[in-house]
Amino acid sequence: MIQVQGLVKSFGHTYALRDVDLEVTQGQFLTIVGPNGAGKTTLLRILATLLKPTSGLVRIDGLDVASRSAEIRRRIGFVSHQSLTYSKLTVEENLVFYGRIYDVPAVKERVDTLLTLVGLEARRHDAARTLSRGMQQRLSIARAMIHQPSLLLLDEPYTGLDQQAAEMLRQLLQTITAESCTVVMTTHNLQRALELCHTVAILAKGRIVHEAENTSLTLDDFQQAYWHYVGDRWPR
C-alpha cells in the first residue's frame, strides 16, 4: 500500500526527514510517534501529496506521489491539525461541497451515512464554527472519508480533545479500521499510539529509529523504548 525508500525532505538547509524507509500493507494501522519537530507532519503531508519529497521514493498503491498525485488523492483521506472545513458553512454544506469536488456519486446519501457514523446528524444544519473541538474533529474525519478512501492519514487527531471527545474519536477510528481501511496516524501520546495500531514506529530527528509490531507490546516497554530513542540519551 505505502512504500517509502530513502525519503529526504529539506526546507533550505534544514532537514525535516532524513533517509526514511517505511512499508505499510493494505489494511494495516501504523502509528508514528515522536516528539515535536520530529518530522511526523512533514511525512504525512508528503504521503498526502501536499509536499514534494526532496529525494527518495514514495509510492502509494504503486503510484509515485510526485508524478501521479491526482490519482493518489482519490485514494487518500487526510485529517490534519486543522479541520479543513469552512466555518461559515453548515456541517452538511461542508460535506456536500467536498463530495462534489471529489466527484462522489449520490453525495447526499453519502453525507447522511457519514453524519450517522460520526454522530453529527443532529448538528447537520449548524455552522461548522459552532461545533466543539471534538465535534470539529469528527466532522474533519467525515470530510476525509467522504470519497471512501482506502488510506486514511491522521495527523495528531487527539490534539486538543478532552477525555470524552478522545474516547469518542477512538471508537470512531475503531469502526473505520474495521472496514479494512489502511491508516497511518501520528501522535505524541504513547498511550493513544498503542490503542488501535498493528505497528508502531518512532520518528526522531527526521529518522525512523524504531519499529515494532503491537502484538505483545506493553505501554511500559514502549515508553522505555521511546525514551531510549528520543530522550536525553539519544546522541545529539
Partner: peptide, 21 residues
Amino acid sequence: AMEMENGCLDGLFLAPMDRSA
C-alpha cells in the same frame, strides 16, 4: 485568505482535480 482559515486551502489541494479548477 478565507481559504487559509482552518487550512481549507489544503482541503482543496487534496481533492483529485486540476488545480486550475
